[in-house]
Amino acid sequence: MAKENTPKRTWSKPPLIKNPTIRWIVVIAILAYAIMAFLTIQSSIDPARISKGWPRTVRLLTNFVQPDFFTRIKDIRIGVLESITMTVVSTFVGVILAIPFSLGAARNIAPRPVYLFSRTIIILSRTFPEIVVALLFVVMVGFGPLAGAITLMLATIGFIAKLMAEDIEDIDESQVEAIKATGASWPQMVVYSILPQVLPRFIGLTAYRLDINFRQSAILGIVGAGGIGAVLKTSMSRYDFDTTGAILAIIIAIVLVLEIISGYIRQQVQ
């Protein structure tokens, strides 16, 4: 070759942290933390307690595989119906209330004050875990599915509004411009240029949220906010693990059905 004197140029991926000293300090610190964390847990591992709990574990698992649907059929039916009601109501109301916040929280179409207001509401609704909000509403409106439904509705608003606002911020502006240029009003602009662009995602997210709300409704019962969770908790504390198994099987079945439905819907709207 002609260019024999050209030195061979090597290349390797530049490291994430350039300074080698800092890089090694970070690596060692992470390792040290992991080891110490393990040692902390290890001290609380008590072989005696584990061996005492072992028969219970075995009973739990054996009962799970032979679930009893019938002993508590009435409670289970009420619980499931309550959960489904909570899910449908909270998803429906929440999604509708989320629409104005979705538009308000999209930087590209909302005036600054509206944007800040909507973002604040979304952040508030997403800050607290559902279970904490549910505890609050149990105090405010009493035990039962109403507390759970309000909780899930608020969570739905935050969830849908945040994700939809991000989708609206990513739309193709030229379509909006074209509709504005025809002399369309603001609501017409939304319906004709924004809605068609975000509708598939809106429907997909709604279906997904329906499925999340059902699963959440199973948890909220544990703090007394209605639904199948209450029945689940009672069966656990009574050591009726066969009933627990039955409830879990029902929850799994419903979640699967919802998953299939929402998957189908998302496929259809694209």
Binding site: T182, G183, Y192, Q197
Partner: peptide
């Protein structure tokens, strides 16, 4: 004032007819 765009700026997910009729939105 009718406007015609470089990248057409049609609303992609609407039908041809809906796009044409959108000119009457005003």
């Amino acid at each position: 004032m009718g406007m015609i765009f470089q990248e057409y700026a049609l609303v992609e997910r609407l039908s041809v007819m809906e796009n044409v009729l959108s000119g009457r939105l005003g």
